[in-house]
C-alpha cells in the first residue's frame, strides 16, 4: 500500500465520520419536534395517592435523563423483549409469552465490548497512555489466558457479532426483511474485529512503529510506518471504512437514539404547553356557523342559543374561512 494512502485514508475517513455525524445530528436537531409524544411505559404523575413511574413515564428532566441513560447504557427497551414464538409454533401465541433476552444480551455484549476495545485503543493516539486505557486493558486481560494473553472483550465481541449474524440468517422473517446494507454493516465490523484479532494474536505487528504512526496521525504530523504488514493495512482499512460509512448507514443510530422524541420527552403534555414552532393554522367550523344551521332545531328542542332572531351576520374571525356549510346537502349519516 502506497505510503500516501496510509496517511490519506484515515484522514478522509475521519473527515467523513466527524463531518457526516455532525451533519446528521444537525439535520435532526434543526428539525422541530412539533408535539409532545413520549411513549409512556409507566404510570403518569396524576393523583397524590398513585405512585408515578418516574423513569418509565418521566414528568421531570431528571426522569428523562434517567430514562435516556437506561436506554443508552443498558438498552432498557430491548430488555423488554418478549417472545410470542409464532414462527416456532406456527400458530398465534399463547398469551403467556416466553421471555426472550438473547437479543438484548447479544446487543449488550457487542456494544459494550466495542466500547472497551475503543478505550483500550486510546493509548495509540494519546501520549502518555491515558490511565483509563491502561486500566481498562488490565481489567480486560485479567484472565491471562494464552500468550499474548487474550482480552475478554475480543472473545465476547466475536461471539456477539457471530450471534447477530447468525440470527439474521437463521430466522426466516429476519432474513426476509434484512437489507444488503445490514449485511454490509456486519461484514465491516467483522473485518475490523477479525483483522484486529489476527494482528494481536497471530501475525503480530511492530507495536512501537504503529504507535508512532498513530500518534503522528493524532498530532496531524503523520509519518507512515516503513513496513506496516498486510494485517495492519487490512485493520486500518476496515476501521476507516467503518468510520466513513457510519454516519450514512443505520449505524448512525448511535447518535440518533438520543434524539428520539418518544423517549427523550417528558410525559407532561397537560402540565406544560409544548410549543410547535410551525403550528399550522386550521380553520374550523365555528359555533356561529353551527348555530346558524341548526337554530330552528335548537329552538324547537328548547336549547339555549345566542341569537334568537336571525343569523350571525359576520362569523367571527379565527374560523369560517370556508364560508357557510352546505346546508342543502343530504344528511351526512
Amino acid at each position: 500500500m502506497p505510503t500516501v494512502l496510509l496517511i490519506a485514508v484515515p484522514y478522509v475517513a475521519a473527515v467523513l465520520f466527524l463531518g457526516g455525524l455532525a451533519w446528521r445530528v444537525w439535520t435532526w436537531a434543526a428539525t422541530p419536534e412539533p408535539f409532545r409524544i413520549p411513549t409512556t411505559t409507566g404510570q403518569q404523575r396524576s393523583l397524590a395517592g398513585i405512585a408515578p413511574s418516574r423513569v418509565e413515564s418521566p414528568s421531570t428532566t431528571a426522569g428523562v435523563v434517567g430514562r435516556m441513560l437506561l436506554e443508552g447504557l443498558l438498552f432498557r427497551s430491548l430488555f423488554r423483549n418478549v417472545a410470542s414464538g409464532p414462527t416456532a409454533a406456527g400458530t398465534c401465541p399463547d398469551p403467556v409469552f416466553l421471555e426472550r433476552k438473547a437479543l438484548w444480551l447479544g446487543a449488550m455484549a457487542f456494544h459494550w465490548s466495542l466500547l472497551v476495545i475503543v478505550v483500550r485503543h486510546l493509548g495509540l493516539f494519546v501520549e502518555p497512555i491515558p490511565r483509563v486505557a491502561s486500566f481498562v486493558a488490565s481489567v480486560d486481560g485479567f484472565f491471562q489466558v494464552g500468550s499474548p494473553s487474550w482480552y475478554a472483550t475480543d472473545v465476547i465481541v466475536i461471539v456477539a457479532l457471530g450471534y447477530l449474524l447468525f440470527r439474521r440468517v437463521r430466522d426466516p422473517l429476519l432474513r426476509y426483511l434484512t437489507l444488503p446494507a445490514d449485511y454490509l454493516a456486519l461484514a465491516v465490523l467483522i473485518a475490523v474485529v477479525g483483522s484486529g484479532v489476527v494482528l494481536r494474536y497471530v501475525a503480530r505487528t511492530d507495536l512501537i512503529a504503529v504507535r508512532q504512526y498513530t500518534l503522528g496521525l493524532a498530532a496531524l504530523a503523520p509519518t507512515a510506518p516503513a513496513s506496516p504488514g498486510a494485517g495492519f493495512v487490512l485493520h486500518l482499512l476496515s476501521v476507516s471504512v467503518l468510520l466513513a460509512i457510519l454516519p450514512f448507514t443505520k449505524m448512525v443510530h448511535a447518535a440518533g437514539m438520543w434524539l428520539s422524541p418518544t423517549r427523550n420527552q417528558a410525559n407532561d403534555g397537560r402540565r406544560r404547553r409544548h410549543v410547535n414552532p410551525w403550528n399550522a393554522p386550521a380553520p374550523f367550523h365555528t359555533y356561529e356557523e353551527w348555530e346558524d344551521e341548526f337554530r330552528e332545531k335548537l329552538q324547537a328542542a328548547g336549547l339555549p342559543i345566542e341569537r334568537e332572531d336571525g343569523r350571525f351576520q359576520n362569523p367571527q374571525a379565527g374560523g369560517g374561512e370556508r364560508g357557510a356549510p352546505p346546508a342543502a346537502q343530504a344528511p351526512l349519516t
Binding site: 412539533p34 430491548l78 437479543l103 422473517l173 434484512t178 449505524m251 448512525v252 422524541p261
Partner: peptide
C-alpha cells in the same frame, strides 16, 4: 417539519425486536 418522521426514517437497524 417532524423530527420524529425524519429520525425514524434514518435510525432503524432492522433488529426485529418489534416484529412479533
Amino acid at each position: 417539519r417532524y423530527r420524529s418522521f425524519r429520525l425514524f426514517m434514518d435510525i432503524c437497524v432492522r433488529c426485529g425486536a418489534c416484529a412479533d
